[in-house]
């Protein structure tokens, strides 16, 4: 079941990546990247469950923080330069 969940997350990140590539606007790419970050955090937690370890949880925490900061920075960029 854990493997199936990892597969679903891989499919999800594929969808987000396609949206990052095709755009069309910068805002589309930013929200897709934000979704990719959430998927990454989910993948780290799923990996931790699979391996029964708490080693990677700090990474999940930091990625969650950085994702928010990155999205906000992107939004500021759009506001100044246009999408």
């Amino acid at each position: 079941m854990i493997v199936a969940a990892a597969l679903l997350l891989a499919l999800a990140s594929f969808c987000f990546m396609v949206r990052v590539v095709i755009g069309p606007s910068l805002a589309d790419r930013i929200i897709a990247l934000d979704g990719l970050v959430v998927t990454a955090v989910a993948a780290i937690v799923v990996n931790s469950i699979w391996r029964r370890t708490d080693l990677f949880l700090d990474v999940a925490l930091v990625v969650a923080f950085i994702g928010f900061v990155g999205t906000t920075a992107g939004a500021r960029f759009i506001e100044r330069r246009g999408g």
């Binding site: 079941m1 199936a4 990892a6 679903l8 499919l11 999800a12 987000f16 949206r19 998927t39 469950i49």
Partner: peptide, 20 residues
């Protein structure tokens, strides 16, 4: 745990499909 993980991943996949 398996059911929760599958349900959560399914929701994230739905979001990906929606974004696409």
């Amino acid at each position: 745990v398996g059911v929760l993980v599958i349900a959560g991943s399914m929701l994230i996949l739905l979001a990906g499909i929606g974004v696409l």
